[in-house]
C-alpha cells in the first residue's frame, strides 16, 4: 500500500510572526509590513514541507485569525459576533452573524479588513503539492448565527465557493468540515470545477452515489465508509492533540493494506493546536516507520 502524506489546516505561527502580529496590533508596524512578513513566513513553511517530503499540504493560513474569519469577512452581509469556543477546545473563534449575503469581495490581493490581518486570503506555493483551503460549507453554517434561511444560504455559499475557485483558478482545493455534517451534495458542482479533497468529522454519513466525478480523497476516521466516493481514501491519524511524536504510523495502518492500494495519511486537526516546535517535528512523522 502506498502512503500519501497530507497536511491541512492552520499551521502554528513562528515566534517571529507572533511578535510581528503583536507589533501590528499595536500599530507599530504597517499592514504592508505585516503582509510582507506573512509571505516570508509562508515561504519558510513551504521549504519545510518539501524537506519533510509531504505529498500534499494546504496553505498554512498564517493570516487567518480563525478557521472561517477571512472567508466570513470577504462576503458582504456577514459580520462578526462574539468570541465562541471552537468545539471542545481552549481555542476561540468569532462567530459570524449572517444576514442576507451579497457579493464576494476581493480575496486575491492586498486588502485591509477589520479584525483580521490583511488579505490576500492565500499565499500560494507553486508546486503541485499545494492545496487551497476552505472551511466546509456545512460547518461554516453550524459555526454561525443565522439571520437568514439556512437552505438558501447553503446554495449561496456554494455559489460563492465556485466563484472563489474560478477567480483564483484553484487547481486543487481541500475543504475541511470540522463538525459532523450530512449534506455533501452541496459539493457536486465543486467536484466538477476543481480537484477536490474533503476532510470529514465523525460519522458524517448520508453520502449518496451517482456522481460522475469523485472527490480526489475523503479523509476521515473511517476510510471504508467513504472509499466508494473518492479516488483515494484518507485517514486522519497524525495526532494534533499530543506532543508525542508518532514513529509508527505505518504499523498503525498496516491492517488497511489488504483493502487499499493507496491511502492518504493526514493530521487529525489543524497543527495550530500544537507548539510550533512540535508541529515542525511531526511533519516528518507522517510516514513514520516507512
Amino acid at each position: 500500500m502506498k502512503l500519501i502524506s497530507l497536511l491541512y489546516g492552520i499551521y502554528p505561527r513562528s515566534e517571529s510572526l507572533r511578535k510581528a502580529y503583536g507589533k501590528w496590533e499595536k500599530g507599530k508596524i504597517s499592514s504592508i509590513e505585516i503582509s510582507d512578513k506573512i509571505r516570508e513566513e509562508s515561504a519558510i513553511f513551504y521549504d519545510l514541507t518539501k524537506e519533510a517530503n509531504l505529498d500534499y499540504f494546504t496553505d498554512p493560513l498564517f493570516n487567518w485569525y480563525d478557521l472561517i474569519r477571512p472567508v466570513a469577512l470577504s462576503i458582504e452581509g456577514i459580520t462578526l459576533g462574539p468570541l465562541t469556543r471552537y468545539k471542545e477546545t481552549n481555542t476561540f473563534y468569532r462567530e459570524p452573524i449572517i444576514g442576507e449575503t451579497g457579493k464576494l469581495n476581493k480575496i486575491d490581493e492586498f486588502r485591509e479588513i477589520d479584525a483580521n490581518p490583511p488579505l490576500p486570503m492565500f499565499h500560494k506555493d507553486h508546486s503541485k503539492s499545494y492545496l487551497y483551503f476552505l472551511p466546509g460549507i456545512n460547518s461554516f453554517i453550524k459555526m454561525s448565527s443565522l439571520r437568514t434561511d439556512a437552505l438558501n444560504l447553503r446554495q449561496k455559499l456554494k455559489d460563492i465557493y465556485l466563484e472563489m475557485v474560478g477567480r483564483l483558478k484553484m487547481e486543487r482545493l481541500l475543504i475541511y468540515e470540522p463538525f459532523e455534517s450530512e449534506n455533501f451534495e452541496i459539493y457536486d458542482d465543486l467536484i466538477d470545477a476543481t480537484s477536490l479533497f474533503l476532510v470529514v468529522t465523525g460519522k458524517s454519513g448520508k453520502f449518496t452515489s451517482g456522481r460522475k466525478k469523485k472527490f480526489v480523497s475523503i479523509i476521515s476516521d473511517d476510510p471504508y465508509t467513504f472509499n466508494e466516493f473518492c479516488e483515494i481514501p484518507g485517514l486522519r491519524i497524525v495526532d494534533a492533540q499530543t506532543t508525542r511524536i508518532d514513529g509508527d504510523i505505518l504499523l498503525k495502518v498496516k491492517d488497511l493494506s489488504d483493502n487499499f492500494d493507496r491511502l492518504i495519511v493526514a493530521n487529525t486537526e489543524s497543527f495550530d493546536f500544537l507548539p510550533r516546535s512540535i508541529a515542525d517535528k511531526k511533519l516528518f512523522s507522517f510516514k513514520g516507520g516507512e
Binding site: P12, R13, R18, Y21, G22, E25, Y65, D66, L83, N90, T91, F92, Y93, T243, D272, F273, L274, P275, R276, S277, I278
Partner: peptide, 14 residues
C-alpha cells in the same frame, strides 16, 4: 514545549 493559540494572536504555554 512552546505556546499554542487561544484566539487571534493570543497564546498560552500549553
Amino acid at each position: 514545549f512552546g505556546p499554542v493559540r487561544s484566539f487571534d494572536n493570543r497564546y498560552y504555554n500549553k
